[in-house]
């Protein structure tokens, strides 16, 4: 791994240069909420810590995405694929969200690969950023993620005093740093140590310690436990937890047709919705809310692990922070681990 330095005052000029060559997607603030959006000027970028409401997965897997258009004008059938991706830089991704890309990759890059996802993934350079604070809902450490870890990024920045320590982690990252080398300086002694010290400090700030050992196996024996019905009593059945989850990846495919023209698109789906996996016959294998809620936790905490050998949760805490009725996945994990079979 190559390591460089970037002076703080050079970050925005660097991003401004990148913006000329790439579509720059970065955290922006709107009414005190953070979102990852394409920016036209680096002045829009909100630097610093803080968790976006919607995770950056939407850059690779948009909430709504057109797959193709069709026309049946004159009795024929014309299909027009709408596959497109611009070279982009995705800036300011925190360690939990960096891990989420690995979770999504396991799903979308398995054979047959999802071309829409792959194309965006290939054309995007990811610049990660270390956390400088731990939110009360954060629990990434449960999944072995450190708040200063850059795994999953092409280039990773960690704020250390007046500089960013720059870790160049992939060939894509190397290419980017080489191309904009005038912005970077050589690593100096003490910076890497300071980053490690930050890791120690932040690790002590998690308010809730979560242990996930043996969870997938344990859950296997609890499918019919009354706990799920009990938990679902307060669940509203809304889509917040799934839509703000960096690893949720269920989607629905629908057509919209006007006369002879139409388009097929896919969009995020949520397992808490009443029409989730509703069959054409009218049968729904998860007709009750508790079954749908159970599905969410099984998917996060068991199915993903069993299918792809990677945990389905990254401990970002978004669902914990935003659930209107305080369904707290950390508490679910602790309860499940303590339940008798």
């Amino acid at each position: 791994m190559d390591s460089k330095l970037l002076k703080k005052e050079k970050l925005l000029p660097l991003l401004d240069e990148l913006r000329k060559e790439f579509l720059l997607v970065a955290p922006v603030e709107e009414d005190a909420l953070l979102f990852y959006r394409p920016v036209e000027s680096v002045a829009e970028i909100k630097l610093g810590s803080g968790r976006s409401v919607v995770p950056p997965k939407e850059w690779f897997f948009p909430q709504a995405e057109s797959l193709y258009r069709y026309s049946t004008e004159g009795g024929g059938l014309v299909l027009e694929e709408t596959l497109a991706a611009t070279p982009a830089v995705l800036f300011g991704i925190h360690p939990c969200d960096l891990r989420s890309f690995a979770v999504l990759d396991a799903v979308f890059l398995q054979e047959p690969v999802d071309r829409y996802y792959t194309l965006r993934r290939e054309k995007t350079v990811i610049i990660g950023i270390s956390c400088t604070a731990v939110c009360p809902e954060c629990f990434c450490s449960a999944y072995g993620i450190s708040p200063v870890e850059g795994t999953g990024a092409d280039v990773h920045l960690s704020e250390v005093g007046a500089v960013y320590m720059v870790e160049v982690l992939t060939p894509k990252g190397k290419e980017l740093v080489a191309r904009y080398q005038e912005f970077f300086e050589d690593q100096v002694a003490g910076v890497a140590e300071a980053k490690e010290a930050r890791k120690e400090t932040l690790s002590g700030q998690f308010t809730v310690r979560v242990t996930v050992d043996g969870l997938p196996a344990k859950l296997g024996s609890l499918f019919d436990h009354p706990y799920w019905e009990e938990l679902s009593r307060r669940c509203l059945g809304c889509g917040i937890c799934t839509y703000v989850c960096p690893t949720c990846h269920c989607f629905d495919i629908t057509d919209v047709c006007r006369g002879f023209e139409g388009k097929r698109f896919r969009c995020w789906d949520a397992c808490l919705f009443r029409d989730y996996t509703l069959h054409t016959s009218g049968h729904n294998p998860r007709h009750a809310l508790y079954q749908r809620l159970r599905n969410r936790f099984f998917h996060k905490l068991k199915y993903n692990h069993d299918r792809y050998a990677i945990e389905g949760c990254v401990g970002c805490g978004r669902c914990v922070a935003l659930c209107p009725v305080n369904i707290d996945i950390r508490e679910v994990i602790a309860t499940v681990r303590g339940l008798g079979e």
């Binding site: 909430q63 709504a64 629905d252 057509d255 919209v256 139409g262 698109f265 029409d275």
Partner: peptide
Amino acid sequence: FEQAVPGWQQGAMWVEKAKN
């Protein structure tokens, strides 16, 4: 807004499921 009748069935969808 929950009547999931897709367009090709010429159903009346009040809003598209896609966010726009």
